Amino acid sequence: MIRVEGITAFVAVVESGSVSEAARRLRLSKSVVSERLAELERSLGGVLLHRTTRKLALTQDGAAFLLRATRIVQEIEEATAEMAVRRGTLSGPLRIAAPVTFGRMHLGPALYPFLAEHPEIQLVLDIDDRRVDVSSEGYDAVVRHGPIVDSRLVVWKLSRSRRILVASPAYLDRHGTPKTLADLDGHKGIFYTNRGVADWRFQTPDGAIVVRASQAVGMNNGDMIRDAAIAGLGIALLPAFIAGPAIGEGKLVAIDVGYRPEAEFIYMAHPEGRNPSAKLRAVAQHLRTTFGDPPYWDPAD
């Protein structure tokens, strides 16, 4: 007989890439996870994983079985969550990925009271600025700032995200304050490299206008972009949730060039074809309510 514990162990090993990491996620010993894998292979009559000292690789049988095994694990988790909802509680594992700066400044503080209210939820929050593959890396959802182009994801809007063109007072004293979009051409820009382009987009009555300033530095983290702007290295286009405190403290100055940057949003996205669990829907609604509309971090005009 095939045991559910073996299927769960197999999926966890594939998603995490190692027996030791799967054991950590499942809160089991490595020996227990290995035994469950071996028992599953004996029950199926085939080898699912090639094991070496350095890595694990799916066999053809393993790759074929993984699709159904993943669905089985998901269905069990969702059924368990639904039963918890019927009892008036939310429970079970939940794995979410989010960008570093937003996660540290706003997502974490928003989630802590929710988790205190629902102590049976076992949240794993992975903070990383890279673009994770939600489905293949085993996440229930990802929180992102900016556009999501992956057609395999179902996207929920959590909040608006206003962006502000900023520079330090010292930089503006040295180079002058731009008043128009054309003035930006003569300035140095600090750009977010994860977007893959070094430009700024603004809303005008005639549509979007793209401005490409000379790149002073490129970085893949919002905190560091803010700090580089404070250090006077150039002009940066930052979300209000990052730039707001520095503007309030006088470390950065908001620059008005006559037009606002294109609007962006904070999103939560989950894999297409997977029914979102009750606890994930509850988290999303809690975040919408906590962030507000307009969001609490937006500076007053």
Rank of each mutant, 00 (worst) to 15 (best):
F291A: 03
G218D: 10
F202Q: 04
R42Y: 08
G17S: 05
W200Y: 13
L287M: 05
G17Y: 02
I266E: 04
A300Y: 06
I7V: 13
S34A: 10
I247V: 14
P93R: 06
S159Y: 02
R212E: 12
K279W: 06
V197Q: 11
V14F: 12
I190S: 05
A116D: 07
S20K: 10
S34K: 12
W200M: 14
L233W: 08
I148P: 07
W297C: 02
D301N: 09
T59P: 07
F265H: 12
A38F: 13
V283H: 00
A231L: 02
S31E: 14
R201V: 12
A110H: 01
P99W: 02
L125N: 01
T193R: 15
A116M: 10
V217H: 13
K157E: 14
A231W: 01
N221S: 11
S91C: 08
R86V: 15
E5G: 09
H175R: 02
T177S: 07
P113Y: 00
T289F: 00
A243D: 03
V85M: 11
F265G: 07
D173M: 14
R54Q: 15
A208F: 09
H118M: 03
E120N: 08
R288Q: 05
A246P: 04
K251E: 14
G292M: 01
A284K: 08
N221P: 11
A231D: 01
S161F: 05
A282G: 04
R201H: 12
D206M: 11
D173S: 14
N275Q: 14
T52M: 04
R212Y: 09
T177I: 01
G92A: 09
V217P: 10
V217Y: 15
R131K: 15
I76V: 15
A23V: 02
T52H: 03
P299S: 03
D61I: 04
V257P: 02
T193L: 15
R36N: 03
G207R: 04
A240N: 07
G232T: 04
R54C: 12
A213P: 07
L172Y: 01
I76W: 10
E262Q: 13
F291H: 03
D133Y: 12
R131G: 13
V47T: 15
L90H: 05
A236L: 11
V19E: 03
R130P: 03
A64P: 09
R212D: 08
P99Q: 03
S136I: 02
T193V: 06
G45T: 06
A182D: 03
A231E: 00
L233I: 15
Q215W: 00
G186C: 08
V211E: 00
P169W: 00
G196L: 09
M1T: 06
A182S: 12
R27T: 15
R226N: 13
D206A: 12
G232C: 08
S214D: 10
T70M: 15
V210W: 01
K55V: 15
W156H: 07
R24W: 08
T80K: 13
N221M: 09
V19Q: 10
V155K: 04
T52W: 04
F191E: 07
V33G: 02
I225E: 08
I2A: 13
V14K: 12
N221D: 14
R195N: 14
P109K: 01
V11W: 05
Y267F: 13
D256H: 00
H50G: 10
T59K: 01
V11C: 06
V47F: 08
L48N: 07
A167N: 06
R212I: 09
T89N: 06
